[in-house]
Design a protein around this nucleic acid. Structure first.
Length: 412
DNA sequence: CGTGAATGCGCC
DNA sequence: AAATGGCGCATTCACG
């Protein structure tokens, strides 16, 4: 334990507000330690799954190469790029960060849409790229299996400037998480999830009346936004329109602009521009908050969460747009991270560890492990702790009880 | 052969 | 010129 405390070190990011964080710093470290006990793994299930996926992958590779008429190293972005853009002369739709032609799944999907009938190998290739990460993730789990047959997350509380706490277990594909199971047969996992945490934080920080009204009435935010943009009743918002609303709402959190929205929705950039205009015309406080934030960043040189966690912004040189986006996101994502930290401490104090154990965290979710019989009651208790008002905005929590770690929602 | 950059995927 | 925030991991590739 002492070793661990030492290894954690102290706050390494000079931009972080020490006053705020030091309140719970040591307790957080102890809680993370506890959670690093990690998960028991259903290894035989995992092995079976891997075999199935590997079989599929082999077939898909064969199908790809058969349709292509030659061998291909599906893993090599370089080789794939040369094939698509040099040999087959397909259009390069996106650049990578280093200005190469991207061959990511999203690019391949567009190519499939455009040229799928002439290039049959695209289908199995995409499928391959989809499935391969699952097999890889399983391999990683096996690699990380300790002598105790468990996998242990390694939480780094100070790694990320926004304050988020990361672990590789957070990004295991859902299919793999099914094989992470409670410590014994009598136990279950309790998942506690803030719904739309970041959008609610944005509502509070911006004071946007549409958001506030929507949340207080318990309406669907994505539909409501469309209703405001297109001046139509919520009941007439189509599912496709709702998806559009969702895309814009989440893009907003990351500072997405017309170019990105156009790519996401597969629409012309003018149209994306129009949609963003409509969005900000309907949600003037959001627009104001964005503008006010940027001005403040320029003046102060840092962005700050609602609880004072700071990140410095480099606005003297380089990509200042990116820095402004980062700052804007920091306010929201970082505030969410603060809330999770506070919650963690409260839960830890309130839980009877004999009955329930803090098991895992994932940014806007907390997982407990408890006896099956006591799970509903413990879930209620934890929900009450987490369900707070933030600057007058209620943060509702959904509770789910699982026999394994395959939590999460179906994509909607 | 190890290392680090670059890419692309996973999750929130 | 870039164009969506945060991270961890595996793989490829260039280099010493």
């Amino acid at each position: 334990m002492m070793n661990r405390m030492k290894n954690r070190g102290s706050i390494s990011n000079p931009g972080i507000s020490r006053e705020t964080l030091s309140i719970h710093e040591e307790e957080i470290v102890l809680i993370l330690d506890e959670m690093e006990k990690g998960f028991r793994v259903d290894a035989s299930n995992l092995k079976d799954q891997k075999n199935l996926y590997d079989e599929k992958l082999l077939d898909l590779q064969k199908a790809t190469e058969k349709n292509l008429g030659k061998r291909l190293r599906l893993n090599s972005s370089k080789e794939l790029g040369e094939l698509l853009f040099d040999q087959l002369n397909l259009p390069a739709l996106r650049k990578t960060q280093k200005y190469c032609d991207s061959v990511s799944i999203s690019v391949l999907e567009r190519l499939l849409e455009l040229y799928g009938t002439s290039y049959l190998f695209l289908g199995p290739l995409i499928e391959f790229k989809r499935i391969q990460p699952i097999s890889k993730a399983i391999k990683t789990v096996f690699k990380k299996l300790g002598p105790d047959s468990r996998i242990h997350p390694e939480f780094n509380p100070f790694g990320c400037p926004t304050g988020r706490i990361y672990s590789y277990i957070q990004n295991l594909p859902r299919e793999v998480r099914t094989c992470l199971i409670p410590d014994n047969e009598a136990n279950v996992f309790i998942e506690l999830d803030w719904s739309q945490q970041e959008l609610r934080i944005l509502a509070a920080l911006s004071g946007e009346p549409v958001f506030l009204d929507c949340f207080s009435k318990g309406e669907d935010l994505h539909k409501r936004v469309i209703s405001e943009m297109f001046h139509k009743p919520i009941s007439e918002v189509t599912p496709e329109e709702r998806r559009l609303g969702k895309t814009i709402n989440f893009g907003l959190l990351y500072g997405q602009e017309a170019y990105g929205l156009a790519w996401n929705l597969n629409i012309p950039i003018d149209k994306a521009r129009g949609l963003i205009d409509q969005y900000f015309s309907a949600l003037t406080f959001i627009k104001g908050f964005k503008e006010e934030s940027a001005e403040r960043f320029w003046k102060e040189g840092f962005a700050e969460t609602a609880f004072g966690r700071r990140t410095r912004l480099n606005l003297e040189s380089g990509n200042t747009d990116k820095e402004i986006r980062r700052g804007f996101n920091h306010q929201i994502q970082g505030t969410g991270a603060d809330l999770l930290r506070f919650t963690l401490v409260s839960l830890n104090e309130g839980l009877n560890r004999k009955m329930a154990r803090l098991k895992f965290i994932a940014h806007d979710a907390v997982y407990l492990e408890a006896l099956k019989e006591s799970a509903p009651e413990i879930g209620e208790h934890a929900k009450a702790v987490m369900e707070i008002d933030f600057k007058g905005v209620h943060l509702p929590v959904t509770t789910k009880i699982h026999p394994d770690f395959s939590m999460g929602e179906a994509p909607s």
